[in-house]
């Protein structure tokens, strides 16, 4: 008799434990702790954001991933972060000058790539966001992007049992806050590191990953004529410049943020990593190809009061040099990153 009670007790315990572990097994990821370890080459600078105040866990990473791909973050539940940031084009918006936001409204700026964000101090084309954690509030609340309030997002998330348990397992708290949501998003997006392009491999082992003659020449010309703004290894100096697209400005760019006249028509120098994939180019996506971009710099630069002094006379490039630069730029394509299973929807 006692044995039987004992057995029942054990069965009951077993079942109870299974139930209490159910939440755990739901999140049981394809991702392990080892998978979320971040690494980058030693020639990268010290990151701006180091996750000290936002310790990364696989639960936080997976929650961030679910949020990133969930249209719940938009007013009518149709647009997710991933709608305009697609992994196969390095998290830019494939072949879109402007992205369609909510109600099919068109945005006013080209959707930027998302990677190496840990090294970025400011975000958006005009640098209007000064911290990676609050950056997502921009697109979530923008009336022509996702047009939702933070308050509604938190309410919608709190009404979902799956999110309640995911937030609990990530942050061990019974209520969902905007801070947790934003930190989870950063645990995911901040993990996007693009540092496995052919350029990187060549840098680390040129014998094993040689450059062609064109690529080698392209690199040399690039370093001489483009590298001061698109500074390696991140291929941006994170500054704001007017690169001579227009004489007058429909979009005031950096001025919109600083109200300083000398910032009129300036935009952030974008990274050139994965540039082959992230077309169209410029803040308004006006150029379809890298050749068009280079032609702009050789004979399309327009004069204005805030034009970058380095571009006053354009950049002198022969047809061959242009071909070589494009060949080099294509070595910055990082297919390992764009196919990384951990970031897939």
């Amino acid at each position: 008799m006692i044995t039987r009670i004992f057995i029942y007790c054990i069965i009951a315990f077993g079942i109870l434990n299974t139930i209490s572990c159910k939440i755990d097994s739901k999140v049981k990821p394809l991702v392990t702790d080892d998978d979320i370890v971040l690494s980058w080459p030693d020639y990268f600078p010290t990151p701006v954001y180091n996750f000290e105040e936002n310790p990364r866990t696989k639960e936080g990473f997976l929650l961030g991933k679910k949020l990133f791909y969930d249209p719940l973050l938009s007013r009518d539940n149709t647009i997710s972060c991933g709608s305009c940031h697609q992994q196969f084009v390095a998290f830019a918006h494939s072949d879109h000058d402007f992205s369609h936001g909510i109600d099919n409204l068109l945005g006013v700026r080209n959707s930027p790539v998302l990677f190496n964000l840990m090294w970025q101090k400011e975000f958006f084309w005009d640098g209007g966001s000064k911290h990676i954690e609050v950056q997502p509030i921009g697109p979530i609340t923008n009336p022509i992007e996702m047009d939702e309030t933070l308050e509604n997002v938190i309410t919608k998330l709190s009404n979902r049992a799956d999110y309640r348990s995911l937030f609990k397992s990530a942050f061990n708290s019974d209520s969902i806050t905007s801070q947790q949501m934003l930190k989870a998003l950063v645990q995911f997006m901040g993990s996007f590191i693009s540092a496995t392009s052919r350029y990187d491999k060549h840098l680390q082992d040129p014998g094993k990953h040689p450059f062609s003659t064109d690529e080698k020449s392209g690199l040399a010309i690039f370093e001489q004529k483009c590298g001061s703004c698109h500074a390696p290894p991140l291929f941006t100096d994170n500054s704001y410049r007017n690169n001579g697209l227009d004489e007058t400005f429909v979009d005031s760019g950096r001025f919109h943020i600083t109200n300083i006249n000398s910032d009129m028509g300036k935009f952030k120098v974008p990274t050139l990593r994965n540039i082959e994939l992230s077309y169209p180019y410029m803040h308004d996506g006006r150029f379809e190809s890298l050749e068009e971009v280079l032609s702009h710099y050789t004979n399309g630069v327009k004069q204005s009061g805030t034009l970058d002094p380095t571009l006053a006379n354009g950049i002198n490039l022969s047809a061959t040099e242009k071909t070589q630069i494009v060949a080099f730029l294509k070595t910055l394509t990082d297919i390992e990153f764009t196919k990384d299973e951990r970031f897939k929807e």
């Binding site: 936002n54 609050v134 509030i137 801070q179 930190k183």
Partner: peptide
């Protein structure tokens, strides 16, 4: 970065 309480962007 993301704050709570009185500074919650909400």
């Amino acid at each position: 970065g993301a704050q709570i309480g009185a500074l919650d962007p909400i």
